[in-house]
Simulated assay, not measured.
Amino acid sequence: MSQFENVTVLKKANVYFDGGVTSRTVVFADGSKKTLGVMLPGQYRFTTDTIEIMEITAGELLVLLPGETEWKPYRGGMQFEVPANASFEMDVKTITDYVCSFVSASS
């Protein structure tokens, strides 16, 4: 899907790591949320509250998922899932564009 229809976009940006990661929240008619963001090269650690599906639309990075010991490469066109209440690490190699979907327990 190259675009989202009938959504609300929150004006305030989500800014992390001194601007190394920024995103905007998109709210759908059913109440579900996604963020559309950009990550600059660098290393980042995030913690999840819900299941998150990270779709990489452009760029290259390495990801260390919870319980894993090896970093795995991801690039545009790939995605990965992170369980709820977990931490994961990213080593972003090039400017990376992403869509993060938040999956509620009732989904």
Rank of each mutant, 00 (worst) to 15 (best):
Q3S: 12
F4C: 05
F4L: 15
E5I: 12
N6A: 10
N6D: 14
N6E: 14
V7H: 03
V7L: 00
V9Q: 07
V9M: 07
N14R: 09
Y16S: 03
G19Q: 12
T22L: 09
S23R: 06
R24H: 13
T25K: 08
T25V: 13
V27G: 04
F28Q: 14
G31N: 09
S32R: 15
K33I: 06
G37H: 07
L40S: 09
Y44D: 03
R45H: 07
T47G: 15
T50I: 02
T57A: 11
T57I: 09
T57R: 14
G59F: 12
L61N: 02
L62Q: 12
L62H: 02
L64A: 04
L65Y: 07
L65R: 09
P66N: 06
G67D: 03
E70W: 00
E70S: 09
W71K: 12
W71L: 05
G77A: 06
Q79C: 06
V82L: 03
A84M: 01
N85A: 10
A86T: 13
M90S: 04
D91R: 15
D91M: 11
V92A: 03
V92Y: 10
K93N: 10
T94E: 13
T94N: 08
I95L: 09
Y98S: 04
V99S: 05
S104W: 04
S106T: 14
